[in-house]
């Protein structure tokens, strides 16, 4: 176990996780107002109409695939009758489809962001950084899938990457599992870790605002004026003040 491997497969993941969790907590407390999708649909709709749903639906499929591939031990899948071949075939076909959909959507969105004047002007530095790491992560992931899974002999990441990731979350890191992982998968993992560290400081925070509650609440929301002193707690030293008590001002 070389020091560099320890850094890459133990230190970096934990730094990334801490930045991700603490960053979200900080951002939510500090910047609820900035917590938004920052949609640019009002500027331009013709490209967004295609690009945005393609990207988002694609990335949701990618997410679902990663949850199954990384967090569900293969023995569990064997137990319900999903063999290695079935899994490999399904993951490769559906994964490739999702990857193409996502990348095509992302390409449309980035093209739009660069060429449509108002959208480009509304792009922040953080947006650009985020796009770089998002594109790198998606690109390496797709490349790894195509090189090893589609055209190659197939790499069994469920023997290496998946248990390594689970070991990280179990606080018993096993960096040795990552020793013989192909470089494309390494790059995919590392760029993803960088993206996760950046996540809370980008517009990606809107992922955690997925409005699932909309399905269950009544249509019309009523709130009392008394409850609506903003949704954030007053900061220390800024407690609400009340008008001075007239009794205390009056002479006895």
């Amino acid at each position: 176990m070389s020091p560099i491997e320890i850094v890459l497969w133990v230190a970096v993941p934990y730094v990334s996780i801490i930045a991700f969790v603490a960053g979200h907590i900080w951002r939510y407390r500090y910047d609820k107002f900035g917590w938004t999708t920052r949609s640019s649909q009002t500027y331009e709709n013709a490209l967004l109409r295609w690009g945005s749903p393609m990207f988002h639906l694609g990335i949701l499929m990618v997410l679902a695939g990663h949850v199954v591939g990384l967090f569900i031990p293969r023995e569990w899948l064997y137990a319900i009758g999903i063999t290695e071949e079935m899994y490999h075939w399904g993951a490769t076909v559906m994964g490739s489809f999702a990857a193409v959909l996502t990348l095509a959507g992302l390409a449309i969105l980035i093209y739009r962001r660069r060429t449509v004047g108002p959208v480009f002007l509304a792009t922040t530095v953080m947006d650009k950084v985020m796009y770089v790491f998002l594109a790198l992560t998606l690109g390496f992931g797709t490349l790894a899938t195509f090189v090893h899974q589609v055209f190659g002999s197939g790499f069994h990441y469920r023997e290496t990457i998946s248990p390594w990731l689970r070991s990280i979350f179990g606080f018993q890191p096993q960096p040795e599992l990552m020793a013989n992982v192909p470089i494309l998968f390494d790059l995919h993992v590392l760029s993803a870790l960088a993206l996760f560290a950046l996540w809370p400081f980008t517009r990606l925070v809107h992922v955690f605002s997925a409005p699932v509650g909309y399905l269950f609440r009544p249509y019309v929301v009523y709130r009392s004026r008394d409850d609506v002193q903003g949704t954030r707690a007053p900061k220390r030293g800024w407690d609400p003040i009340s008008t001075p008590d007239p009794q205390r001002l009056r002479r006895p």
Partner: peptide, 16 residues
């Protein structure tokens, strides 16, 4: 509009 808001951020004030 309130009924359309997915986040539940729009509301009608109960008092007025």
């Amino acid at each position: 509009c309130v009924a359309s808001c997915p986040s539940g951020a729009m509301y009608k004030r109960a008092e007025d």
